[in-house]
Design a protein around this nucleic acid. Structure first.
Lengths: 230, 230, 230, 230
DNA sequence: CATGAATGAGACTTCATTCAT
DNA sequence: GATGAATGAAGTCTCATTCAT
């Protein structure tokens, strides 16, 4: 009955199926999702009421439940696909070879990655807000997300990092640490840009260079644990 | 009636008064707060019910409302003091001189800071979880927090950064950018350590060194904005 | 959503629109209003509980709040229309000319008036009870009621009284005083009849004549302030 | 424990015992009663909370219940004595002879009565408000009040009226009717004066004369029941 | 006597969900 | 498919009353 899967682990399927989610969304259904995104983002899932969503969507209260069995179903139908798209760039069949072929260095890869995710976040900001808010409370979703990240994304990235380390571009830290440091900087930038100070007048290209340089400098130079006694 | 202030902008007062607010907490009141922290952290403020809190605290539901006028009052009485303690190290009267006198370099300062905040987060993890969850929805609290961060914390840190830049330890980036990059790495570490992978067997001192080195390398070397015209 | 207006000053509109407000009342809604009238009249607004009303109406408690946003809304939806009907006879477009044309004397007018209001009170006794109980506590309602009484009703009656005074039927007291005395007797009769001693076996036509004669005698004879020294 | 009787039918005793009610009222007790009167009058018995009363009286919540077993007890301790004083002038041992000796006519009697009750209402307005509000809902109180009115007051007044009728001063209507008409006018005056338009600038002596004349004219002239067959 | 923390029943209200139309 | 009236469980909060101090 619902056009979106309600089982939480289904959202990766959507990605692999390349985006066809349940076919036709009626006009009303689209309006429901749109309204739900806005209200969930504004007040949080628990504090949002289905009647408010119905009102903003301009449909009857019952109509929501014709498309989504429960309120949580509606939430998952919003979060799931976005999570899929979030990891999409890494799950493409040929991630590693493409990466190694396309980018001369880790910095070029980072530049491309950050540019790409900047656009993604810009376009899906409300849903990402919801995602960040709800992931701590949706256990199954979180576990599945973590599993996919580790299984699909991390293994690919790890290989790439080993590749760049073998080239001598990157310091010989554990790949996990390299990822953590890189992700910290990138995510820190995105959050500062879009959530903490969205009202500032950002020069994104410049900030991008700063981030990439920071990461490259941080990860390229000498020994990682320089203190002799450690 | 409540021993904790319910006006949102009051929490900094608590810090400056450095004291125990409102005196005696009865035994029951302490149990209420304890239970509230656990349940708010576990399911979020909106999804938590006062009856569940009362039950876990082992008091009658009415007792909660004798101490806290509303459920939100209870939340704020938990979040406020923690926010105050969170910025405490920076608001000490003599932050900048102490900093400059105590620490030979930015790295020493970072080391001390991270060690200190590691302990803080470890001790107040549930409340910090609540803080992160609710800050997007508690407008007044958020604005006040931002204001204090900018007014009290940032100006002090900025001076310190200029000091280290004058010494040639740090790259000549805007202080705001230096802070952003530093904070990204530190917060990224803390969240990875305590929220994403708390179950791993962390060698905190080693990770601390990695973070500090990463930051110092990232912020010390060559030109930050390599594009000639900038 | 409510079929009765909840803004207090709206009730006169209902009268002037002379129509059925808000169209269809569902069957359940009618039962809710009916039950509310009975219970409000019996124990007073504050002491009545919505759960008791729901029970007597045979609906779920939530159903009440689908039709009336608050308990007070329910009260006002009951009181408002009755207040409108209470002043209706005086607000008819052509009150004064009709009055002067139809009634040879003040006594005929009184006779018609009392007969008419007798029926009204008989039909709406419970609501009138509620009205009398709650008007002291519903400030806005009371002020609006007083304003309408003075603006719509009193000015018309005043003109009629001047007319009868010009004819020599009525003593030359201030119209306000004439109204006060007349109303005292009429209201005194209605309250004695319906609220103090409803169980007695009343001969209403006879009592009506007594009242009218009392008023006419009281208001027709000599000087109103006969004491020479006053 | 309570210094005021809680059995509703006890209030007449107080009158006959000539006012000594339970001896000493502590200072706090007096403040409780004072606060209760104000709050009951302002928002009604049911809508008033004991905690609000305690606060206004400046005592602890528990203190109220040390003096009055229940909230209703507090109400009755306020209403009872006032009801007693309300009928006091009529219950004096020698009402009828005094009346007949003291007053040349019904008008003199009325004049004295109204003057006396004016002062009484002026002094006890808040309690009288409470009395009027609560009498419909306090069944026992109401029945007792009615019984006393009929047994103690009415029989005395009836005798006086027969006396004045025998003198030819008053029309030969049933005493009950004479009382009803008289009371209507007097009560109508008092309510207009103190409750409906207390803000007007009243010339009480003049209004008193108007009322008395109105009553005397209404009750003295021609046939009260003009219909021949009655 | 007085206090005020504690209680628990019950108040009003919201809400996700169902179902007859 | 769409509606929206109806539901009843559950939510937040109030309140009269008790009792240990």
């Amino acid at each position: 009955m619902s056009t979106e899967p309600s089982t939480e682990d289904a959202w990766l399927q959507q990605l692999l199926e390349l985006g066809e989610s349940g076919k036709a969304m009626t006009n009303k259904q689209r309006r429901i999702v749109q309204a739900a995104v806005e209200i969930f983002a504004e007040k949080g899932y628990s504090a949002a009421s289905t009647s408010e969503i119905a009102q903003k969507a301009g449909v009857a209260e019952g109509t929501i439940f014709r498309h989504y069995k429960t309120k949580k179903d509606l939430l998952l139908s919003i979060i799931g696909p976005t999570m899929a798209k979030l990891v999409a760039p890494f799950v493409l069949r040929d991630f590693t070879p493409v990466l190694e072929a396309s980018y001369a260095g880790y910095d070029d890869f980072l530049r491309a990655l950050v540019r790409n995710r900047l656009e993604f976040v810009r376009r899906h900001l409300p849903v990402i807000r919801i995602l960040l808010q709800e992931i701590p409370f949706q256990t199954e979703l979180r576990e599945e997300f973590k599993a996919v990240l580790m299984r699909e994304v991390y293994v690919r990235v790890e290989k790439a990092i080993h590749h760049f380390q073998a080239q001598g571009q990157l310091i010989a830290l554990p790949a996990f640490t390299v990822v953590r440091l890189t992700v910290s900087v990138v995510v820190g930038f995105l959050m500062t840009r879009f959530m903490l100070f969205p009202e500032l007048d950002w020069n994104e290209e410049e900030e991008l260079e700063i981030c990439v340089n920071f990461i490259m400098n941080g990860l390229s130079a000498g020994p990682s644990v320089p203190r002799g006694e450690e």
